[in-house]
Design a protein around this nucleic acid. Structure first.
Lengths: 151, 151
DNA sequence: CTAAAGCCTCACACCGACGTTAGAGTCAAG
DNA sequence: CTTGACTCTAACGTCGGTGTGAGGCTTTAG
């Protein structure tokens, strides 16, 4: 399969596909004349790349993760030391990811609250004494960020 | 509170705080000499901003969402038409956010699988006939991206 | 009064994740 | 052989989110 077809089938622009390759996330073969040729499995692979990137996962993780999906079978270093380091790195990333998900869920809850309030809006200019849903917001806020905002 | 103190208390650099203001996410008062002065509530607010930005939420949503948190009390347009549009926009964002969370959870599961496998690694160079955990990976992959990768 | 620390604006620079263009080669069909 | 669709590399542009100054004003401490 050439790059154009892969692009059509995945929705990723040709530019993006070449970019992913540049980043080591794809490794198409080449014809004699230099044309990239992709395997069927790359369709899947591209979908996963886009999914992870769109979620703002660090590029490194994407790469490392994907290396394990090359053909559904991981390539794990044989030396135990290196394997340990790999495991450590990945599980750090896992923890970061978990935090990020939690943060997103709180944002989602907050957004849901807001949508509900805009919809069933009790609000208007507001009788000054009326507490409204202020406490709900504050509650969500208290559950709050908390996450380390891992830089 | 001046910008330096807010920076210290939130972990956001001074530069970032000014940037957030530039983007309409913060609106500190000014002293006569032009110094920014922040309210206590801005500590919370900054935390939320960083949390949402770090999760790659579209900047617009952050802004709109935060406007509702100004003082724990939303500012909702009075004209029903505009209110409806706002509700529609926000709930679109809510849907997108939900999808993104789902995608992230799948990525997390996948990553967890991988970590587990690297840890308890049954793998090594691998007996060629051994299916290993390939099916696990494939299963996660099948549950897979699916998300529209909302550009 | 002076020095130091903190603040201000302006502005250039970087990285990631692309879009876009330019100029050239390749390939299948007429 | 020519045309047109497709591909290649290389390079520049853009946008968001930052870092890092430069040059100047304000405030505080000695």
């Amino acid at each position: 399969m050439q790059i154009g077809e892969l692009s059509a089938r995945t929705g990723a622009s040709v530019r993006m596909l070449r970019y992913y390759e540049e980043q080591g996330l794809l490794e198409p073969r080449r014809t004699e004349s230099g044309y990239r040729t992709y395997a069927e499995s790359d369709v899947d692979r591209v979908a996963r790349i886009r999914c992870m990137l769109s979620a703002a996962l660090p590029a490194g993780v994407v790469g490392k993760t994907l290396r394990f999906l090359l053909d559904g079978r991981p390539v794990i270093p044989e030396e135990p030391a290196e394997r340990a380091r790999l495991a450590a790195t990945l599980s750090d990333e896992l923890a970061a990811l978990t935090d990020k998900i939690a943060a997103l869920e709180r944002s989602r809850d907050l957004l849901a609250q807001i949508v509900a309030d805009v919809r069933g809006s009790v609000v208007g200019p507001g009788s000054p004494g009326d507490p409204g849903h202020a406490e709900d917001y504050r509650a969500v806020r208290k559950a709050g960020p908390a996450v380390g905002v891992a830089g």
